[in-house]
Design a protein around this nucleic acid. Structure first.
Lengths: 154, 154
DNA sequence: AACCTAAGTTTGGCAGGCAGACTCAGACAG
DNA sequence: CTGTCTGAGTCTGCCTGCCAAACTTAGGTT
């Protein structure tokens, strides 16, 4: 079966992108994964239009990547905050992959703006492409695609 | 330094997203990394509007992720085709990360539509988050951020 | 010379982004 | 209990960008 004959939108990349493939979605997920939780925190940090944030958060909640939960600050009425669910946290590797690419190709002479370290040992974190047998691979080379006909419809 | 005080758009994720963070960009890069090369192949597979594809390809060429190179088919005039550069191939881990997330969270009962295998040994390929000392980590936990003040301006 | 094809470019309508103004609900001050 | 403050939206009008379809271009074939 040839790649060109397959429908564009039944691959996992297309499906994922149809939910999160938006300039803002990635940044919202980044901010949530960095601990921001409240509507106005996100507004302030992202400089996103309020109605757009409303729609995006609703979509994320719909998807089950984010949950609204009530919280109450002293002397304030109860409000909702937004937190990543497990499904949302599973998205973090995508963000790390994006960050890696930016670090490699867009960082200036001063180096990358943020580095990730393993809290336990302090060593820098990277994303590795590895096969189940343990061989590390460089992207693009030595990768074979196997199509699952049963999952290709719709 | 607090995360909320940092400018949104000087992190590597934001920089990367400002180039590729578009529904189409990801799909175009996916298709190029799967071996499609010609304008009309992409049009046919992606069902993207022609003017939009023209703009996106121009942006990718501008960025140095894609290069145009002439080719000639028998009995046809010379044309250009589009190929990923090394910078573009380095983006593949992002696509794999997106695919993984889709496989985990959006695949139906039939399982993921495509599986990647290591051509040399046939074992399935995965993306691992690992620190330089070799510890594997689960996303979100045990990750520390270190900010590089010198690279944070602009 | 007429025609074909791949690769764009142009066009006009429609959806969605954007900033800023407005609304709403509860807490607190006077 | 009236007025004000704050966080979290909703509303409005403009403007950009997406989209499909029609048109253009350049070189090769008949």
């Amino acid at each position: 079966m040839d790649y060109a004959d397959q429908p564009t939108d039944c691959c996992s990349i297309a499906r994922t992108v149809s939910i999160t493939g938006d300039r803002w979605m990635m940044l919202i997920l980044r901010d949530l994964s960095n601990g921001l939780r409240r509507f106005d925190e996100l507004i302030g940090h992202l400089r996103i239009a309020r109605d757009v944030l409303t729609r995006r958060l609703a979509a994320l909640v719909d998807e089950g990547m984010v949950e609204r939960r009530p919280y109450q600050q002293l002397g304030q009425r109860p409000r909702d905050e937004y937190r990543l669910t497990a499904k949302g946290r599973d998205f973090v590797p995508v963000l790390i992959a994006l960050m890696h690419w930016g670090d490699q190709h867009l960082a200036g002479a001063a180096g990358p703006p943020v580095r990730l370290r393993h809290a336990d040992c302090g060593a820098e974190i990277r994303l590795e492409l590895r096969c189940a047998a343990g061989h590390e691979l460089t992207p693009g080379r030595a990768v074979e695609r196997e199509f699952n006909a049963a999952a290709l419809d719709g």
